[in-house]
Design a protein around this nucleic acid. Structure first.
Lengths: 221, 221
DNA sequence: CGTTCCTTTGAACATAGTCAATAAACGTGG
DNA sequence: CCACGTTTATTGACTATGTTCAAAGGAACG
């Protein structure tokens, strides 16, 4: 779990000790259960030790939008927010383990930096999600999302280069990409046909990472 | 300008003095110019004293997504970010006036609170934008965006109840809502036909705010 | 080993995009 | 203040992309 934090900030002994202590307070949440219930205030940020989660929003008629995914090693919530309630419930997409995120106390500048970077990355992912939904077609959305997921899993360590394990149904991917499950299925088929990805069960391999990245490149960023 | 800050936090003398001093350091930026250039680091957050701005992202082939609007009284950027560069350039949609956002020094708890709330609101708007683009059709997107803009302009004061002045072209609205300018035009026509809005030049009146809100209501939020 | 959830595929349909032409509004220089 | 050029808004006809509805085949799980 610590891998992602060491990758984004220079952690020192006190930072590592705090993370280690927090990791021993793990809480488990079953698949499909809310980690942070709708309308409740998150007392403290959480670290996602294992499993995948997401933040969702529902429209009145049942349409669902997945706002963002939370991958293993990433942070749920932020220090220093003012919100009385969370802005969206956080849902366990797989069985997950979380622990309270240790507050960055005195001498824990590494932790503080890691939280700041995490927050910036989160905003970056949100902006990318907006661009994906607003200006990309289904094919590009899928490619862009796979690239992002690839990068994020790499940042959390444990799989550099290896195929990704994506424990999601096509319906969940659809709710994240603003499509229907049927169209996600067809788009994945097109990606396979074009030899861009290989899918085996819940395992996805990017066969041509450069081509994928080139397809969804933004100007300047 | 101070109106929005007093609406979201309890400001005291020192907060107000700092804001007042900052307001005298206004800088002007012409329409279509970058307030925060692509790839540059924002040294300090800015207060948008007057005019409309937006954060944009461009795809390689020229497609543009407006990530968010920044309305008069709102904040550009945040304290405590770690990013080496801004995540997206900020563009002046009208002639604008900005000033540096005063850092919340000792005894300025009101200012600190106002920045925290502003940041939360910004995230709220981003999540709403994601839901809009991912799960609403053109008609709903327009209604939802008008409702949000209405609320945000109200929060900044100066117009409660009065028609909104929206100094944007239909092409800019299109880039924000993930549509084409042609379809924005048709959607606005439909809204007029349905007596939901009235458009007179750059002035838009929500004729039935309750109906509009009901149409785009989310579950729980 | 049956049930349920998930994936896959087809056919018909709906929504939004594209291309093109015209009209209206705006800005600028004379 | 008017004439001109440019930008923006409006409309129509056609096309493309993605949705809906439905059914069937597979995989996962008690």
């Amino acid at each position: 779990m610590v891998h992602r934090f060491t990758a984004i900030a220079a952690l020192h002994d006190r930072d590592l000790a705090a993370l280690d202590a927090a990791g021993r307070m793990a809480r488990h949440v079953a698949q499909r259960r809310e980690i942070v219930a709708e309308g409740t205030k998150l007392q403290q940020p959480l670290l996602l030790l294992d499993g995948w989660a997401c933040r969702t929003r529902l429209l009145a008629d049942g349409r669902r939008q997945i706002l963002q995914f939370v991958l293993p090693g990433e942070v749920i919530g932020n220090f220093g927010t003012s919100a009385l309630t969370t802005l969206a419930p956080v849902l366990a997409l797989t069985p997950i383990a979380v622990c309270p995120a240790p507050a960055p106390g005195a001498g824990m500048t590494g932790l503080a930096e890691a939280y700041a970077v995490s927050r910036d990355l989160e905003e970056r992912y949100l902006l990318r999600q907006i661009t994906r939904l607003g200006r990309m077609n289904a094919y590009e959305r899928m490619v862009d999302w796979l690239c992002e997921t690839d990068e994020r899993l790499n940042l959390s360590g444990l799989r550099d280069g290896a195929p990704m394990t994506v424990p999601l149904t096509q319906e969940i991917i659809a709710d994240a990409l603003g499509l229907t499950n049927v169209h996600v299925n067809r788009t994945l088929a097109a990606l396979r046909r074009d030899k861009l990805v290989q899918v085996e069960g819940k395992t996805i391999t990017l066969l041509d990472r450069n081509a994928c990245r080139a397809m969804v490149r933004t100007r300047g960023f």
